[in-house]
Every structure is written in C-alpha cells, then in structure tokens.
Simulated assay, not measured.
Amino acid sequence: MSFPTASSEASSVSHPLAPYGWDDAWEAEFAPYAAQGLLPGRVVRVDRGQCDVAVPGGTVRADTEFVVPRDPMKVVCTGDWAAVDPGGDPQYVRTLLPRRTAFVRSTSSKRSEGQVLAANVDHAIIAVPLAVELDLGRVERFLALAWESGAQPLVVLTKADLVPDPTGLSYLVEDVETSAPGVQVLAVSSATGEGVDVLSALVAGGTSVLLGVSGAGKSTLANALLGEDVMEVQATRDADGKGRHTTTTRNLLVLPGGGVLIDTPGLRGVGLWDAGQGVGQVFAEIEELAEGCRFHDCAHGSEPGCAVLAALEDGSLSERRLESYRKLLRENQRIVAKTDARLRAEIARDWRLKAAEGRAAMEAKRGRIR
C-alpha cells in the first residue's frame, strides 16, 4: 500500500477545489482528462439538464448533454466529480469520475428505478425531529439506505430544546440508539446551539448529506452549521410537525469548519433499493441471532430451534424490532425481484411449495375428520 508524500499532500491541500473535497486520489483519477485539457469540478446543484459546477476558477453553469445515460443511476447528481470544458458558451460536463459512494432510493414510478440523491458522500446525517413522536421504523429505513450507500450514518435528533427534561431527552436518545447499532446519536438544537459544535467537528473533513422528512429542521440545521442564514426556513405545523419543502433542490455547501454539506428536500418516501446488506447492518443483532438457528434458511416464523424466536420470547428482542426487520426484508426482496429474473423464479417456487404444503395439510386434516 502506497501513501501520499508530503509534497503531494501539500499540492492537494493547496488546490482550489480542496474545500470541496479534492484530494490526491481524485487528482490521480482525473489525470487522463487533465491531459485532454479538461477542468476538474464538483457538481454543487443540478437543475433541468444543467448544473452548477465548482471549478478551479469559480462556479460555472454547465450543460449535461454529453452525459445523459440510459441508466437513471448514472445521471449527473449533486456531489459528483466531473470533467468540464475549459471554456465556451455553454460549457459542457464531458464525463463523471467513478463514484466512491452513492445514496440511492427507489423511485415512486412503476418501472422500479433507483434514484441517486447524493454522490461521493462520507457521512449520511439523518435528521429526526423531536417535535413529534419518534418513528423508529422510519429511522431504521433511512439507516438501511445509509449503510448500503457506503457512507457512515449519523442520527441527529433535531429541536432538542422542545424536550426540556434532560432525563426524557436521554431516554429518547437511548431509544434511537437501540434501533441504530453502530451509529452515533446526537441531540441538537439549532435554537440554543446545543450539540451543533459537536456535529460540526464530526462532519469536518468530509462530505455529508442531510436527509429527513419535511419539517425535520434540516434547513435550520444547515444554517447553524454554516454560521449564517443561507437556506430558507419555513414554519412547521404544530399539530404534526410537518412543513412545506423549504429546500427544493439538492445543494452542496462548503462548511466554514471544514467539509461540505449536501442539503436535500424533505423526503415523503424512502423506498429501499437493493439494500440487503444495509438492512442486515441495521438489524445486526437479529442477523447474529439467526446464526444460532437450527436451520440455515430459518424464516423465524414457527420453525423449531429458532434463536430469533427464543430471543423474542425471553424479551431480549422486541416484537417491534423484529417486525420492522421482516418488513424491510420483504420490501427489499420485492424491489430486487423486479430486476432479477432468477430471484423472481425462486420467490415463485417458494410460494408454490408453501401452497402445496398448505393443501397437503388441509387434505390430511379432512382425512382425520372423516
């Protein structure tokens, strides 16, 4: 394994794009395009076939005509690193550098397509408002997508000032920690500044994407991290804590304490997209229990020798947690099956076997009755 030299480190730090996350690895990746006279740049905003790109000389507006792939997973996205024309009117994005990570969800379309929400992300900040009752199932869903993306998840409980009782706040943090193994959970208040300095230190030196439902306080939190009111903020309804989508596009912003932040619009739906490993990571304790089951293909339903059901019975595993695990596994399997013919055939075969077993059981029961 080779390590960058002091001179190469100095060159990447002094590069005009260093505040946007440029490093030696990106420089090496870009070398062939540099030889062609193209400019490196990071996509900071995408809008209707055009995008704003931060290049060494500033920010330019560029057309994406030359990078319109058939695969919707490869369209230009906020956070992408690109090779851009050095001049011209308009300027064009010629190609994208391979992504290190990508936060992907399934679209609401019937075609079962994935949508990349942010590219080349190091930290996935999941904003959960304390203004309303915690939805742990939604937190687990976001976490599954975050782990699958390759980024390190971080759960931020926003509007902590609305929970004045320190004991009550600590209980809420513990509840989320139970649903987020291996993930730091941080209570933050943009109004009082509680936890903002800790969050700033955690996200410095990398790219973070800010995710959550509308009304989660993402734009307010982004302003707190930026130290100024850059993102527009709108009030939420007292009844349910929901608000209108203040942020309408995904924007990449340079943080004063180091690192960059991608703010996203509030997400009404976060469908899984081939996130089997992410689901396993979120429910690591259930996956570990499953290794002790008598049968390797145990469905944790009524099988004898099921370690998961044993944990459910002795109270070390909650019913809610197991049901959430089953729900996300089923959803992910449906999504994958839509694009995997072999898996579809396996699912159909399993259903036929279960149907046959059910019919045989009914016939045996009727025979006993006669």
Rank of each mutant, 00 (worst) to 15 (best):
E319L: 13
F142M: 09
H300I: 04
A235T: 15
W351K: 15
E29Q: 09
E357H: 13
T64L: 14
A307W: 05
V198Q: 14
V53A: 04
R349V: 01
A191M: 07
A144H: 06
A187F: 04
Y92E: 06
R370D: 11
F3Y: 14
V155Y: 02
E148C: 03
A34E: 08
D89N: 13
V209S: 01
D175V: 00
V163N: 04
L136N: 02
W26H: 10
G195V: 05
L272M: 04
F142K: 03
D350C: 11
W351M: 15
D63N: 14
S179L: 03
D340V: 09
W81N: 05
L157R: 02
R250A: 15
I369L: 15
R326A: 13
E228L: 08
V336C: 11
V233M: 10
Y325M: 11
V185C: 03
A311R: 08
V173S: 01
V260F: 00
K327F: 07
R244N: 12
T249W: 02
I347H: 08
P265I: 12
A31R: 10
L353N: 10
G58Y: 09
L172M: 09
S112C: 08
R42E: 11
G271Q: 12
V132N: 13
G195H: 07
P86W: 14
T59Q: 12
T95V: 03
R70L: 13
P304E: 07
V116E: 00
Y92D: 01
V336I: 15
P72K: 03
S189F: 04
H300E: 06
A34F: 02
P90M: 14
A290W: 10
T107P: 00
T178H: 11
V76A: 03
S149E: 05
A235Y: 04
A62Q: 07
A6P: 01
A204E: 10
S324Y: 10
G315A: 12
E174R: 14
T178V: 10
Q333D: 15
V84G: 11
P72Y: 04
P304W: 09
G278C: 10
S200W: 00
E194W: 04
E287Y: 09
V213G: 11
G88W: 15
V155R: 00
V173Q: 08
V116F: 01
E113K: 11
N120I: 07
V209K: 02
P181E: 06
C77M: 02
S8F: 04
G301N: 04
L289H: 08
V233L: 10
A356R: 15
G87Q: 15
V209G: 00
A361C: 00
F142L: 05
P16K: 07
A6I: 14
W273A: 13
I335C: 11
V53C: 10
N251S: 13
W26F: 06
G227D: 07
A28P: 00
D71S: 12
S200D: 02
L38I: 06
L162A: 05
Q50K: 12
V185M: 02
D240W: 07
N251I: 06
R294N: 03
H300G: 07
L186C: 03
R268A: 08
K218G: 13
